[in-house]
């Protein structure tokens, strides 16, 4: 069977794209390598998605998944290995399965970024973590650091405080990047802050024992004791598959799209975190809808014929 549209990635962009595509009448399918939900599903708490004053990331994403499933097939546990194009047909290879389609939306999201300092790799899973919802419970009553001053970093810090850890937030600049509401909560929860600090090394042999930091205000290098280090310093977009089809990237590394979310490759679209920008659940969902309608236009009434 040939699909009108295959959506790679089942999270806010992909689910929204699927809902819009299916309702427009496209024969579409969503493929996700995991259970669906993407990075947002690992967020402890989301307070800026309209309609929900506050909701757990997993909860919100599972609601979106159920909504999408009412409209089109959502296949989970499907790891797409390659996408090829020939004679106007895309072939999506996922291990033992292949899918053919007239168009493709890359809603492939992003993965967390490492800081790239000594000790980080070696101590991952030994006190270094990139997911507070996953690993927070192991640090109850312990002294932990969160590195990163953006929304994700602060949300992780608050989550860790709520599970009962003693939390210090570390940021490389002297002002936080996170929205004011989160900064206010941080102060209210009495979370300590170490600002203007460059992380130089994560210390420990078998287990994390601390962080070596350059205090950029004083110019001093200091060791601080911690039993856990949660890293939240940004993300890397998952662009490999789109690039293999010839999609161009922006200088920032995200996929280049026009206002209709078309890439430079005909019948190939991108939506959500993989295109950069605000990288919020709401913007990803909006982009998914736009990408789906562009795919609809191009499949059903191509402007070039």
């Amino acid at each position: 069977m040939e699909y009108d549209l295959v959506i790679i990635g089942g999270a806010s962009a992909g689910f929204s794209a699927g809902i819009y595509a299916a309702r427009a009448g496209l024969n579409a399918i969503i493929l996700d390598e995991g259970m669906g939900g993407g990075q947002a599903a690992t967020s402890p708490w989301i307070e800026n998605y309209p309609g929900y004053e506050g909701i757990g990331g997993m909860d919100l994403m599972m609601k979106m998944k159920e909504h999408a499933e009412k409209n089109l097939p959502v296949e989970v546990g499907v790891h797409v290995e390659s996408v090829n194009q020939s004679d106007g047909v895309f072939t999506i290879n996922a291990g033992s399965r292949t899918f053919q389609s007239k168009s493709v939306i890359f809603a492939t999201g992003a993965k967390y970024k490492k800081i790239g300092v000594p000790g980080e790799e070696k101590l991952t899973g030994r006190g270094v973590s990139y997911c507070a919802t996953c690993d927070g419970a192991f640090f109850r009553g312990k002294n932990v650091a969160v590195i990163g001053g953006g929304n994700n970093g602060l949300t992780e810090a608050l989550h860790l405080k709520h599970v009962g850890a003693d939390v210090t937030l570390i940021h490389r600049r002297d002002v936080l990047r996170a929205e004011q509401v989160l900064q206010d909560q941080l102060v209210k929860e009495d979370i300590k802050m170490l600002l203007n600090q460059d992380t130089q090394e994560i210390l420990g042999d078998d287990m994390v024992t601390g962080i070596r930091m350059l205090n950029k205000t004083t110019g001093e290098v200091e060791d601080h004791e911690f039993q856990g280090v949660f890293i939240s310093v940004g993300e890397i977009p998952n662009t490999e598959l789109a690039v293999s089809l010839g999609a161009e990237l922006q200088d920032s590394g995200y996929i280049k799209v026009d206002t209709k979310l078309r890439t430079n490759v005909k019948m190939v679209y991108a939506a959500g975190d993989v295109t950069g920008g605000l990288r919020q659940v709401i913007t990803a969902a909006a982009e998914g809808a736009i990408a789906a309608m562009s795919a609809y236009d191009d499949v059903k009434r191509p402007y070039w014929v």
């Binding site: 995991g34 259970m35 599903a41 690992t42 989970v76 997911c131 919802t133 996953c134």
Partner: peptide, 17 residues
Amino acid sequence: WAPWCGPCRILGPVIDE
């Protein structure tokens, strides 16, 4: 694993298989 761990839910179906 734990229920609220996203990556665990990615690995879950692989383990089932």
